Amino acid sequence: MALAHVRLALTALFLMAIGCFGTPAQAQRAVPALSARVIDQTGTLSAADRQALDTRLAAIEKSHGSQVVVLMVPTTAPEELAAFANRVGNAWKVGRKDVGDGVLVLVAKDDRKMRIEVAKALEGAIPDIAAARIIDGAIKPRFREGDYAGGLSAAVNQIGARIAGESLPLPSDTSERAARSAPGVDWTDLAIFLFFGVMVGGPVARGIFGNRLGGLLLGGGVGGLAFLFTTSVLLAGGAGLIALLYTWLFSGTGLSLGGRRGGGFGPAGGGGIGTSTGGFGGWSGGSGGGSSSDGGGFSSGGGGDFGGGGASGDW
């Protein structure tokens, strides 16, 4: 009988413990991958809507450096809206790394809730009361009419205006690199200049300094010239590597490889044009690769630093 009483007491204590501590917490909603400035997981916005918003957000980043992103999800459940927004902002690290000037506009469509999450560096430009006014004045009336694109566009315009009035470090973008580039430089002329320079200079450098040191010196010189005119480390490295390999492999005895193609120009008389043309083509390929890497996609600035600033609302 005493053993039965003990078992009953232990069972009661176990049930009390479950009641006090609750059941295990539900899993949090996964943070989506940051693949664009506008991410719509609800299928609400058209491609034209997303493009228009992206264009405006890109203009804000180009002019002022701050990153603003828009995320639409069906729901944030089981997580509360503000907690999810803060987690997404810090996971995506929106804003510049050394500034932390990011903004996340989050819409939970099925929950009929929205939030503007503001990183710490922009809490002066967009304080909580200002974020609430943007929600109440720009987003809510349009969302109630089903105009989601219009509400987001109006919000982005007001956020951009407030960022423009804030004293922030100027963005460092491609305009600085363009200013450093020599005006009126023709890419074809530059490539031809380097092509013949390597073809003529390779054997000379090899004859004076030897195969190894001559190749290193010529490669370094060509890479330096390429960087001076393009300010691209990728192109400079590619040009320097090609010059180095040409001097090591094709200068002198290597020029005879081109002679089999019928060329007759070159220091060794073996048709260096044929051989060097291949190198020139490879250099141009490097240029194309650099252009595509500079011009596509969107990525975080490495900022983050969201401390809970902003405001939430519904419609």
Rank of each mutant, 00 (worst) to 15 (best):
L257V: 12
R56P: 11
A4V: 10
R206A: 15
G219A: 06
G288W: 07
F21R: 06
A226H: 01
G279P: 00
A179N: 08
S167I: 12
P127C: 11
F84L: 04
L190P: 02
R96Q: 08
L194A: 11
I134E: 01
R142H: 04
A191T: 12
H5F: 06
S172E: 15
F143Y: 14
N157L: 13
G137L: 06
T231H: 14
G165K: 02
M199A: 15
G214L: 02
G313N: 00
L228W: 04
K109M: 12
A179V: 08
G286S: 08
A154T: 11
S175H: 04
A155M: 09
S276W: 03
K140W: 05
L190D: 03
P32L: 03
G95L: 08
M114H: 03
A36Y: 03
R96P: 00
S167Y: 00
G270I: 06
V118K: 04
A77D: 15
V94Y: 05
D49I: 07
L235R: 06
V105N: 00
V73K: 01
L213A: 14
A48S: 14
G264Y: 12
G301I: 12
S63T: 10
P127Y: 11
A131E: 02
G207N: 15
Q41P: 04
K120P: 03
L71T: 04
G201D: 06
I163C: 12
G290Q: 09
V94H: 05
P78D: 07
G215A: 02
D111G: 07
N90P: 05
E145P: 00
T277D: 09
P24L: 11
L241R: 08
A268M: 11
S167V: 13
P141Q: 10
A108V: 01
G278C: 10
G289L: 05
K109G: 10
A182P: 01
R212Y: 11
L217R: 02
D314N: 13
S292G: 10
H64T: 12
G296P: 05
D40F: 01
D136V: 07
N211H: 09
L244K: 03
R7L: 14
R142C: 05
D110N: 13
K140F: 04
F306V: 03
N211D: 15
D49E: 08
A30F: 02
L245D: 02
G220I: 05
F229D: 00
Q26M: 13
G89P: 01
A25N: 13
S284L: 13
C20D: 14
K113R: 14
D40I: 00
I129V: 13
G95K: 06
G237W: 00
G258M: 01
R29W: 03
S172R: 14
L241A: 15
L257A: 09
W248I: 02
V107W: 09
D136F: 07
G303N: 11
A155N: 10
R142E: 13
G266K: 09
G221F: 03
G150K: 00
P183V: 04
L235W: 06
M1L: 07
A154V: 08
A178L: 13
W248A: 00
